[in-house]
Amino acid sequence: MLALALYIGWWQVDGPGAPELVAQRPLPLTQMEFRMTDQVGSMVGPTTLLGNPSIVFFGFTYCPDVCPTTLSDISGWLDDLGDGVADMDVVFITVDPERDTVAAMAEYVSYFHPAIQGWSGTLSETARAAAGFRASYEKVATEGDDYTMNHTASVFLFDSEGQFAGTIDYHEPREFAVPKIRRVLTRTEEETS
């Protein structure tokens, strides 16, 4: 009898009866709590982003492929949006604060669109930020005593009130990405007018 009960419990929780894992939506920015430092040394956090629509994504500067591609893609979207991005916050959060110091982030973001900010925090603040965005990351050892980071490469959109407003998948074509951002910008204009 006990065995049967245990079996039923397993089937519902971990077994074939378990609910399918679905990527969770980020919390509203107003419900997140973390403190970081931006590329010019200012203290920042989720409430810094309220008042303007924002774009937030995770990465690290020792990333040779995905991260420069994401920053280049976003720079291209921002170029397309032109003056519309003047009031937008665009934030790159490092998942590798041990190597990505404030100075390293400042240099890195300087090579991309000027609207892109680089935020870094302590290991625990980084974990708190990722938890709020429902983003994941993991340190992975590579050959030669080195390491790389697996991480969520999606780009998160929020409206000016901090409500989650959609995701742009990694490397999504510009013709899909730009209208998504434009919709968030338009919505914000309607809310404020």
């Binding site: 894992l21 990527a23 492929d65 995905v66 030669g144 790389t148 998948d169 990694y170």
Partner: peptide, 19 residues
Amino acid sequence: SMMPDIHETKTDANGVSSM
């Protein structure tokens, strides 16, 4: 480079990229 190699980036259904 001391260690050049062909790598592949993959992004899973949850949007997590790995190499």
